[in-house]
Design a protein around this nucleic acid. Structure first.
Lengths: 208, 208, 208, 208
DNA sequence: GATGAATGAGGCTTCATTCAT
DNA sequence: TATGAATGAAGCCTCATTCAT
């Protein structure tokens, strides 16, 4: 009987094999130093097979990054209220919960996260595009949530545009620093401190 | 005697010629795509001459970056009081003044700044080293100033280590975003908003 | 039964599909640049199918060329008298008629003709073989007709061997030049001038 | 003493080394089958050296062909009177002398001549360009000489344009056939017969 | 110090051909 | 017969680095 298997044990396609191999190799050696031959070697297919699925090393990289960005987007989409709440504690709780989720995604896909932030933007059009897209999408998502959750009257001294960049900076550089450089940290505590800092920075702690 | 010298018009050394050419080329093409031949071509010297001064493309890059980092360090060193002051307004003024100087250095050396932040860290040992060094030095400098200027009692909920990363994130990502991606902004206003956000984030606005 | 058959609408065999596709592709891209994948793509069959009918790209090319040469041969065979006639005008008429037919075959199968003359002979054994074979057969046919139609006494100063090459040269280079390079010409007039030139060149215009 | 040598014993430049090697290899294997590595191997230089002088295999080929075409042009230029003369014998003598020179150039540079005519025009832009250029230049040179030497009244039944193509065909296909395919022939006799055929073909043998 | 021609390892990419289904 | 994914040999080209002058 050829029924491949009772349920969801799906055979891994060659394309998936290549993507998985590429993630591992990019993580191990970095994008620049990874040769196509490393990827196909890891995937266990022939050199030419790579070109059946991707035009170049750039393309498979883009593929991987785009997929990854979607994970972050999903966290934003699944979050009903981010910067709002009935009182300070609830607001802080919301921010905190959100940041924990974000950090978790970051951590669970550390390999790819690292790729996205470590691999330079350079002047390489590919990286420039990917990296700027990521940056833009991220702050746009933050901005939308801010507009939705915070009365605009709040923003007397600062504008939403700028502040969303600040928040992104706090999150992204911290994630990068603690996960990539320090390599040891307490997610729970980091999220707490971040929430605290953001709450104050945005002055959401002040009674109306 | 040719009149090329009367006073301080010192002849540019071949080494300087190469460094200037490298900065221009790295900025134009990015590190990866810049060939030694591009650098010597721009500098107007022969291919082999490069190797009289630098062991490799990596070395000249490192050279450029280190020089650049020193500029930032100097701003920190020249700053007496950063997070302190007799009252909120004075504190904010200090932070503001400091950030303006930092942004100015960033802007004046945009070419090299861009190199430092755009060129990926990759897994290339060189970039990893340079980039992490920059990161570490920057937050260390912030941390020292915080320890010097802020009573430790302030840090109940957050620790200085972490918060210094937050501040770095706010500054660095903003500078990157507004100067490299958006390419237009108001330094004065950006510094103000950043000072405001940091002040609140650190809760330095709360009376003891 | 599907109505695709009622009468003589015979289904095109896969082999024919491939040959037609190959002619189009060879004409479009030339032999060297045409890939097997182009041919099967044009024919609408799978990659592997090609090898059920032809051992290689060379083989299908040879196949096409041989077929084509037969068309020219037929013109020679169908010609009773080429270089003969009761008087000058009749001779010229015979040559003229013959050349018109030859040019017509050339023109009607321009795609393949072009292949035969454009595709280099190179040192590729395949082309060498095909091209030399074409050359040899052509001049042999001319020679036979000359021997049949012209009293050998005519050839005092020239030998049939050599003159047949001259005639081939006149025809073939003209056809190539006017059809492939200039791409516009008057068949009737070209045949006339060619007949005229050949007649004189061979001195068939001189009374015995 | 470094004076390289008393007189014209000039050192062969690397570029010349490559060209000579390329001619030999192209002749031996044909253009398509010759690899850059064959050329540099024959020349005794490194792979990369090739690219210091030529962008590609195509370029060196073009280089060789253009050089070769100039040799033919020179024969035309050095010929004062081609199709003219005081009487038939003188005309025939002029044509004969010219053809002998042309055949001699062809023969002396047999390797390159073969390249030009064997290597197909294909649909390769390079070959198309080179081959058509050669064709055009050749017939243009013939035409100019015809216009100069022959009273236009002669051309009642034929036009110079067309006839020049005929003459080219006679010469070129003969040279190709006897030198490349048959590989043995008598230059003197071939030139004689060709002169004879052309003279008659053009009807220059008819008293005005 | 300065030159720049020469080197040659290294990696990308193509594509004819095979073979299990 | 027909399929088309997979193969892998083959060759091009780049460019950091060397070295004789």
């Amino acid at each position: 009987m050829t029924d491949m298997s009772v349920n969801t044990l799906k055979a891994i396609s060659t394309k998936e094999l290549l993507i998985n191999a590429a993630v591992r190799q990019f993580h191990h050696k970095g994008f620049q130093k990874t040769r196509i031959s490393d990827i196909v070697g890891e995937a266990g297919v022939a050199q030419g097979t790579f070109y059946l699925y991707f035009k170049s090393k750039e393309e498979i990289f883009k593929n991987i990054c785009t997929e990854h960005m979607n994970l972050f987007q999903k966290v934003f989409q699944e979050t009903e209220i981010l910067f709002g709440g009935k009182n300070i504690d609830e607001i802080r709780g919301n921010i905190h919960r959100f940041l924990k989720k974000l950090l978790a995604v970051y951590k669970e896909n550390l390999h790819v996260s690292e790729l996205l932030f470590r691999e330079g933007v350079g002047h390489n059009d590919l990286f420039k595009e990917i990296n700027e897209k990521f940056f833009m999408e991220f702050i746009t998502l933050i901005r939308e949530h801010m507009r939705r959750d915070i009365p605009s009257a709040r923003f007397r001294l600062t504008d939403v545009e700028t502040v969303s960049v600040f928040l992104f900076g706090v999150f992204e550089r911290s994630a990068f620093y603690f996960m990539m450089i320090q390599k040891q940290f307490d997610t729970q505590r980091l999220a707490e401190q971040m929430a605290h800092f953001m709450l104050n920075g945005l002055q959401l702690n002040i009674t109306k």
